[in-house]
Every structure is written in structure tokens, then in C-alpha cells.
Nucleic acid binder design. Sequence first.
DNA 1: CCAATCTCGTATGCATACGAACAATCGACC
DNA 2: GGTCGATTGTTCGTATGCATACGAGATTGG
Lengths: 139, 139
Amino acid sequence: MDATARYVLDEQIGYLLRRVTQRHLAIFSAHLPQVTTTQWAAMARLMQVGPLSQNLLGRETGMDAATIKGVVDRLARVGLVATSPDPSDRRRLVVDLTAEGRAYCAQGLAAAAAVSDETLAPLEPAERAQLLALLSRLV
Amino acid sequence: MDATARYVLDEQIGYLLRRVTQRHLAIFSAHLPQVTTTQWAAMARLMQVGPLSQNLLGRETGMDAATIKGVVDRLARVGLVATSPDPSDRRRLVVDLTAEGRAYCAQGLAAAAAVSDETLAPLEPAERAQLLALLSRLV
DNA sequence: CCAATCTCGTATGCATACGAACAATCGACC
DNA sequence: GGTCGATTGTTCGTATGCATACGAGATTGG
């Protein structure tokens, strides 16, 4: 058996991650068509920890500065978050949920939980926990 | 404990998938800076099964028609694949590796294997197999 | 106190990704 | 043999995601 035969695309971690992510994105957009996964992640983080500067929000959700700017811009455009200058540091832009954003989060939590459930549906409960634990160690 | 407290972003499958994918992409681009993961996937598939129509190659690698077109265009632009019309179906564009593309694949296989290894490095061998098996069931 | 350095937000370019719409073509059924 | 539905490739619009570069502002070391 040569090297070519041993490298099977469908068994590579990167390929599997991409395929599973695709399925997850489809499930997400069926349950929460108004926002994207990254937009939801930003809102969920703001819900958890309160107002954050734009860059810090990016770091807290695994997005670089250029990416989080686009996400915040789009969320602000539809009125789910609002930005304001930080009086104590004029470089900073503080991002927070609006009342509408908070209501959307509260109303969408059940759907978000359903997304995770449906994504993991092919696995038994013990296997789901195992998968999440293994993935956590690869971040 | 209310619903908000139970939804922890860092424990959601979608969020974990995104973070692990980001780490994997960084490892990949360090080992194979010339191509992207999707470009590599397309070439690996062509290596496995031979020439394919553009759309079929997309389906075989989990990319929709719009995405595979861009991937094939960029690979063709740098001479790693070549396209030719299918004589038996004038709608089809047959995609195949060039000699240079085949050489690049042969030379890059070790690096690609190292990418998968490094991505899974935090796990024991048995855990790696377990993770791949669980992910396979979620595709 | 001030100069080197760092941080923050912004902007641009490139590469996925998907949905939608479109023209050309093929196939199947009548 | 002609019509209708499906397939193929293309294009457009939107949304990540990273690298890079830049100006304005903050911080720290000397």
C-alpha cells in the first residue's frame, strides 16, 4: 500500500469538520433564519457578560478584528445591538444589546438549543458528551 | 437555573466546530501555504477517482456549484488542474489534474498527513479514532 | 515628560460558502 | 419528433474569515 492509498480524504479531520459544519449551518438557518451563527455567537456572549468593546467581543467569540467589525455592523444595522464611544478610552467602541436584541435572544434561546440538539441527533447522549469533550480539547 | 444560564456558548457544537476549524486552518496553511483546504480537497478527490465534471467534483467534495467554480478557476489559474469540454455532453466541463498538479499532490501528501496529525495532537490515538468516528456520523 | 510601543477601529484584498436566478443543453415521455 | 422537466455551468448578492496596512489614541520605560 503506497502513501496515496493511505490518505483518504473522507477520514481527515479537516474534511469531516467542514462537512459537519455545513450540516450544522443548514440546521441553524432553518431554526433562526434572521441571524447567522456568528451573529448569534456575538449576541449570546453579550447576553452572558454584558457590554464589551468591539475588539474584545471579537476575541471572546473567536473572530478577528476585521470579522467582528462586519458582524457588529450588520447587527447594528438591524437594530439588535448598538455601539457607543467609550468615554474612558477614545479608541474603543462599546457594543451592547438593544432592548430589541435582548428580546430576540430571549425568544431565540429555545431555537438555538434545538439547533444543537438536532445537529447531535444521530448520537446517543453519552456520545454527544464525549464528542463535545474531545472537541473542547482541540480548540 | 433559568434558560439563559443553561445555554453556554462554549459548550455548543456549532461554536466548538468553528473554533476547532479555525485552529485546523491555521495548521494547514503553515504546512501547505500554496493551496487552501478546499483546493486540496478537490485535488485529493481527483487523485482518488480521476477526472470529473465540475459539478460532480463539487458534490464529491461538499461544495455547491458556485463554490466549486471558484476553486477550480483558481486551481486552473496556477496550473494545478485543467478543464476541457466533455464531447458527450456540451454542458459539462471536465476537470483533471495537470502533470504539475499530480506532482504537487505526491509531494504534498506527507504535509497533508502531518496537518491531520498536528490537529489531533492533543488527543491519544484511541481518542482520535473515536472523534473521527463520531464526526463521521454527523455528516 | 517623551519616545517607542502597543492597542483599537477601519479599510482593502483574497478565498470560501450558500441561495437565487439564468441560458444552454440533455433526457424522457408522449 | 417535439415538448417539458432536470442538469450544468455561470453570475450576482450577502456573509464569514484572515492577512495586511493605516491613523488615532493609550501606555510604559527611561
